[in-house]
Design a protein around this nucleic acid. Structure first.
Lengths: 233, 233
DNA sequence: ATATTTTGTTAAAAAGATGTTACAAATGAG
DNA sequence: CTCATTTGTAACATCTTTTTAACAAAATAT
């Protein structure tokens, strides 16, 4: 099993600097999406899942602070780091007020940035793991262990692939409630696109096959909205 | 599934400037309706649902301030932004008095306008989400869950389509009171046109069919005005 | 009373989303 | 490298939702 590369959203209007920084980060095993202004940044953020966002403060179209608010609106938890030539105290304070995880003033040492990113990612991943604490679920007559990726029904056991596992996990977290398509797509597939959507439908079909032994359990589609794992209460 | 674009009503008598601004906004993913005076602006506003209105102050036929009052008359909540060459304090104050959300003096930076629009839309959408907080309703012997789009009567459950769901939701919000046609058409269909009206009538018929198990529940037409969901109190 | 407008109702067409299977491509293990 | 597993894509079938048309009935206006 390969650890997935971390995705960085880099919003920077200085093309030269942006390219350099992107190359540097890619060299250190990050997947980087570089966009040149706040509008494109927000569009990218809505479309894809990022592990951390690096935002230039002064940009055309939408400045970094405004962009930060918009991003926070979509995801209150994603780590934000401001990059700025400004070193004025009030700007830095404003940045932190917007829930920035860090604020770096240009010019800066690229190693420093890298270690800051690493530290933030580590902290955030630990947090994320804690949130995902529940690993065992009762689903009708089935027993599902999301850590071992095993779906058991009496004696018969089915091992699940990573994607099957994550999808069933999300369905269980939203048990008897609506699991919105976009949410699952962004969290499991990283972005909400047409093909990822079709892929998800394929996985839903697989899960239904695994779960068909217990007729009281079903994955119901809510047309245009998402899926619902229905289990007896 | 397509995320709906925000709709902007732009009332501006300077055709050139209007076109440019429209193109600019369309480029940033807004749907723009451009009209050249207050009369047409009011007509458009009565017909369609807009997320924000940009009103030029000095116009033939009906000036921006008068138009603003008329619009407020139809919808007290829609965000209004005045665009004006005037920078006189009393005019600005008059604008805010009429419940303007912002007042921009020409010439202005288009980025500034854009970020103002965004900020206003965001605030308004949050407000809107809070209003839509109620998801469960008792309708006679029925139980209606608008999130899961399920209408239950004892054991029998009917899943609703998105439009059926939204319409029943509005009827429930106006329970025992008049739900005006135009309001439902603007909110659910986006605009009050002949065909949308016919479509709505089709949906009313569908809902009546679903609700016919309980004779104490009925959707009554108020000729020329709208519908009323009558339930025992 | 008769014409006009609005609403009720049903059916069919058009558009869109999902279900399902098969296979190709990518990935990881040995 | 080779094999097994996992994932993504294509293709086609099916189901849902929405719109439009057509005609009937009711309400209102002339």
């Amino acid at each position: 099993m390969e650890k997935e590369k971390n995705k960085v959203l880099l919003v920077e209007d200085d093309t030269n600097f942006g390219q350099v920084l992107r190359n540097y980060l890619e060299l250190h095993d990050y997947v980087v999406e570089l966009v040149r202004d706040g509008i494109l940044g927000l569009a990218a953020f809505r479309r894809e899942k990022f592990d951390v966002c690096l935002l230039d403060v002064m940009m055309p179209n939408m400045d970094g602070f405004t962009l930060a608010e918009e991003i926070r609106n979509v995801d209150p938890d994603v780590p934000l780091i401001f990059l700025s030539a400004k070193s004025m105290k009030e700007d830095i304070l404003k940045g932190y007020k917007l829930g920035a995880d860090d604020y770096i003033t240009k010019p800066f040492d690229s190693d420093v940035l890298l270690s800051k990113i690493r530290a933030i990612l580590k902290r955030n991943q630990e947090l994320h793991e804690k949130q995902h604490s529940q690993v065992e679920f009762i689903v009708g007559s089935y027993h599902f262990n999301s850590k071992l990726r095993i779906l058991k029904n009496g004696v018969t056991a089915q091992t699940l692939s990573p994607k099957e596992n994550e999808l069933l996990l999300m369905l269980c977290e939203y048990k008897n409630d609506l699991l919105p398509r976009e949410l699952a797509l962004k969290r499991i597939w990283g972005s909400d696109t047409y093909f990822n959507g079709r892929s998800m439908d394929v996985y839903i079909a697989k899960l239904r096959k695994y779960l068909k032994e217990d007729a009281t359990v079903e994955i119901v589609n809510i047309h245009g909205n998402g899926f619902r794992l229905v289990v007896p209460v």
